[in-house]
């Protein structure tokens, strides 16, 4: 069977590399990797915390609301982990920053950090599990629900979301 196709055992030559260059161009054009994917992977690697529960994105939707000042965009994203569900709504502020309103379920008071490469913002949720970051600079961030010192029944571990591009 091998002898029927001797060309396959010859060393690669310039034409072969040219063909592969062409194949790379075709697929690179037809189905390119999302341009921001390496940055998001790099961010996740830099921020990894082996102890934390990782929340998975379960739902994301974009809403267009016709407001008095014209169309406003708002994104709602839901994350799930073993111990918590985190829902956030992202609205654009007029100064280029974004406002984030969030809810934790089950409702509980927790310390919550918004971590970017350069700095970190911290707020607390209220008894109803509500929290808000009024002004977050655009860029790549992730949310971390900090661990509670004396967690019961395994609850209270820190929970991190995947990287978000705001």
């Amino acid at each position: 069977m091998m002898s029927s196709d001797p060309a396959s055992h010859e060393p690669m030559d310039d034409l072969d590399w040219e063909i592969l260059d062409g194949v790379r161009e075709l697929f690179g054009g037809a189905d390119p990797m999302p341009a921001d994917l390496p940055e998001r992977i790099r961010f996740s690697l830099a921020m990894r915390d082996l102890e934390a529960e990782v929340a998975r994105l379960v739902e994301a939707e974009q809403q267009h609301m016709a407001g008095a000042r014209g169309a406003e965009r708002s994104r709602t994203i839901t994350f799930d982990s073993d111990s918590l569900t985190i829902m956030i709504r992202i609205d654009a502020n007029s100064d280029g920053t974004v406002r984030i309103d969030g809810w934790l379920a089950p409702a509980q008071r927790r310390e919550i950090e918004m971590q970017a490469i350069t700095d970190t913002l911290r707020v607390s949720s209220d008894d109803q599990g509500r929290f808000a970051f009024p002004s977050v600079p655009a860029g790549t961030v992730r949310l971390v629900i900090l661990a509670v010192e004396h967690g019961r029944d395994g609850a209270g571990r820190s929970v991190v979301t995947p990287a978000l591009v705001l």
Partner: peptide, 10 residues
Amino acid sequence: TRGRCLAKLR
């Protein structure tokens, strides 16, 4: 070496 798939494509 070229391999079966690249030989075929060529």
